[in-house]
């Protein structure tokens, strides 16, 4: 007993390299993003819901083969303005078309246009904005271009272009991308300028790192979360734009199913057959809001300050 006690009063071994060891589990950026994202059960639920809606709107039109120009029941009054039933889940419209099929075909187009436009705008905007933020020479004339473009009303431009190009899928995407990337680019430029002169970039310069490597390795990884935030806003905004332009008759033509066109056509029946108007509006709202919530949650999760 006594011996045992005295044993405690002898020197312990001392190992220097042990003190360099890091106990904490390995950090991985994307794993942490994932962990932070799934921690919030509500957003995970919304995300699952959103995925179901997206997948459904991509698949359902394949089976329904919905075509807005195909109106076999146009002369059968008994099949017009039907309320929701097991036969027609969302009822039928003034031409006797099935609203359920129309909604999903429209949603599919809206989603495709929203995603494609966002993708084009973000890619152009991020690449150009990143270079813009670095190059002083480019900044001088890009600012002028930005000033000119941002002073032209978008609606005016959209009207002129849609008359010139005609309505349709491609021309709508072109209209929605031709100038909008510059706002993304301007935003990225400002973000780049904020972190461009930080010390770690100076350190990279001292190591001889090229500007392009600095952009891809030093700047963009820091911008992931702001880019995510921007994208999260951009997708629903583009969907709304599509709907808005189609509503005005500037977007997709008669031949394409479109939520915007449906809403504009059914406005007339708002009092007599309110479900015709409210169903496409609700679907639009559900898609936009769930996309926005998921996007924001992803943006938050990609900010390393939330990691732990």
């Amino acid at each position: 007993m006594e011996n045992n006690k005295n044993e405690l009063f002898t020197f312990a071994e001392f190992d220097e390299s042990k003190s360099e060891h890091i106990e904490a589990p390995r950090y991985s950026y994307w794993k942490s993003v994932w962990r932070t994202f799934v921690r919030n059960k509500f957003t995970v639920a919304v995300c699952i819901f959103m995925l179901i809606v997206v997948v459904f709107s991509m698949i359902q039109p394949i089976f329904s083969q919905y075509d807005p120009m195909y109106m076999p029941n146009i002369n059968d009054a008994t099949l017009k303005f039907l309320g929701p039933s097991s036969q027609h889940l969302f009822g039928t419209d003034n031409f006797g078309r099935d609203v359920f099929d129309a909604c999903w075909a429209g949603a599919k187009n809206s989603l495709i246009i929203g995603f494609v436009c966002t993708l084009i705008n973000m890619i152009l905007g991020v690449v150009i904005g990143a270079i813009w933020g670095f190059s002083k020479k480019m900044d001088r004339w890009m600012i002028e271009i930005y000033n000119v473009i941002s002073n032209v009303p978008f609606l005016l431009l959209a009207m002129v272009l849609s008359y010139v190009l005609g309505s349709g899928f491609r021309s709508l995407i072109f209209i929605m991308c031709v100038t909008n990337w510059i706002y993304v680019a301007y935003f990225i430029r400002t973000q780049v300028m904020i972190i461009r002169d930080r010390e770690y970039n100076l350190a990279s310069r001292c190591l001889g790192t090229s500007t392009w490597t600095m952009i891809t390795k030093n700047i963009l990884p820091y911008l992931i979360s702001v880019i995510m935030t921007y994208t999260a806003r951009e997708i629903p905004a583009n969907i709304s734009y599509e709907v808005f332009l189609s509503f005005l008759g500037l977007g997709l033509g008669q031949q394409n199913a479109s939520l915007g066109r449906m809403i504009s056509q059914y406005t007339t029946y708002m009092n007599a057959y309110p479900h015709l108007f409210w169903i496409p509006v609700s679907i639009l709202a559900v898609i936009s809001i769930s996309l926005y919530i998921v996007g924001q949650a992803l943006a938050d999760a990609s900010d390393p300050r939330t990691h732990r």
Partner: peptide, 8 residues
């Protein structure tokens, strides 16, 4: 852990 004179 950082003490070179640490006893058991």
């Amino acid at each position: 852990p950082r003490n070179i004179y640490a006893l058991k």
